[in-house]
Nucleic acid binder design. Structure first.
Lengths: 245, 245
DNA sequence: GCTTGACAAATAATCGATTATTTCGATACT
DNA sequence: AGTATCGAAATAATCGATTATTTGTCAAGC
């Protein structure tokens, strides 16, 4: 149901799994399941940024042994959601204004580049995937009162952005974008961004998508860049409000 | 001696350690040591690309238990040097023409961007570090007959490139560049690239460095891009020669 | 001859216990 | 008062053994 995970995880170089649904999902081992649960817990803010992860407590909380716990945490390190130091254990990756700004800047660079490449070499299936992702996103309302709708919208939003760039044929680049999106989503969900009054995010998405399938490189890329930039600015204000350095 | 490692590893967000040498190096736990050894073994080609890593055999080879072995391998996943699949274990990341091309393309994008930023905000210390790294590199000869000189040169070369972009103030970006450099070095060392006749690599480095400290953004960035591109082309030819798809 | 299924060997994942390291508090010292 | 030093408690790392999964092989059935 949640399309948040990488599927068969670990390789930096693997392509995305095909959308067909014949799979056993890859959530096989305890380590994998833990990685998923922890990832969601961190991105959703359930686990406080910067806080220490006590292995013993975590072990009891999740009812698992140390080995899979470490295994799961190791994966989140690759995701940039957990930090580790020899003999001092793990902690939830910190958030900061500086980090948010870097994430935003790099998204502008990398996602836009990936979109450019996707427009250049993406095929018709890619176009179709975009239109589908856009439609599903636009048909889904965000109701701030009900958290589950928010999460659903977040998943679709993430899916839309990943689909946009999925045609670029560059697995590594997609991996980097995936990491950045993870980090970005943390900020959004942590500070529950209601879109600021002067934005129509739905329309922004539509414009990007239409530019993409129309193969209008400059238009689509510029719209995407603005979209990312605005989101960054928005988040920065929220962050500043809550007094994060 | 080898400046290959991240030092305190794991966090995607940490800055590079200062060059001062008051540290206990971070190579504390068995897991860390293993990660270093394995990283070197993979980059140097000692472990064949794409080959399976049998945990039992590796355990015996390195005389360690499973836990630290997995720990070490997990780190190399973050580095993109090892791939993993649930219940099917680890294997050395494959190499391919497509991957090499992507690595080269992304280096052009990311390193050049990082250099641009470094020139914009790097301080005098950054400039000094470049000149030092350049000097050390230029003073070191590559003698194809003696592998140890090659490795030494590789380390200095890597150091030079990292120093160039170290002033950009963007830890995540540096992390990405670090990964790409790792992967790139694999290709170079696997296919033992002697610089092709029409290149003077030493001069290329000098030009980039001089452009950087002179704050000539366009000149330095263009030289760096060409440098990366030529290396990519060079490697591609070697790869094709050896019949890698 | 080819597929299917059952079994055995190989391999990966997990567990519980043990060992090493760090952290914290109390005490002694300047 | 502040700092250094020595444990004990807390925490992380590692080990050896056990369990689960996958892979390979061989025989039965079609």
């Amino acid at each position: 149901m949640d399309s948040t995970d990488d599927g068969a995880h670990g390789a930096l170089t693997e392509g995305d799994a095909p959308s067909a649904a014949f799979a056993d999902d890859g959530k096989n081992t305890i380590g994998s399941q833990l990685a998923s649960r922890l990832r969601e817990a961190i991105i959703s803010g359930e686990l406080e940024a910067g806080s220490k992860i006590n292995l013993d407590k975590a072990r009891k909380t999740f009812n698992v042994s140390l080995s899979p716990l470490r295994e799961g945490l190791a994966r989140l390190i690759s995701d940039g959601l957990v930090e580790f130091q020899d003999n001092r254990g793990y902690r939830v990756a910190a958030i900061s204004l500086a980090n948010l700004e870097e994430v935003t800047t790099l998204r502008e660079e990398l996602e836009v580049f990936a979109l450019r490449e996707s427009i250049r070499i993406g095929d018709v299936e890619w176009e179709g995937n975009i239109m589908r992702a856009l439609h599903r996103l636009n048909r889904t309302e965000r109701d701030a009162a009900r958290p589950e709708t928010l999460e659903h919208w977040e998943a679709l939003h993430r899916e839309f952005h990943l689909t946009l760039i999925s045609g670029c044929g560059k697995p590594l680049l997609l991996h980097f974008c995936n990491l950045l999106l993870n980090m970005n989503d943390r900020y959004r969900r942590a500070f529950l961004v209601r879109t600021s009054g002067d934005r129509n995010v739905g329309q922004e998405h539509s414009e990007i998508a239409q530019g993409a399938v129309a193969r209008d490189v400059e238009y689509a890329c510029e719209k995407l860049r603005q979209h990312i930039h605005r989101t960054g600015t928005n988040l920065r204000n929220h962050l500043a409000t809550k007094g994060v350095a």
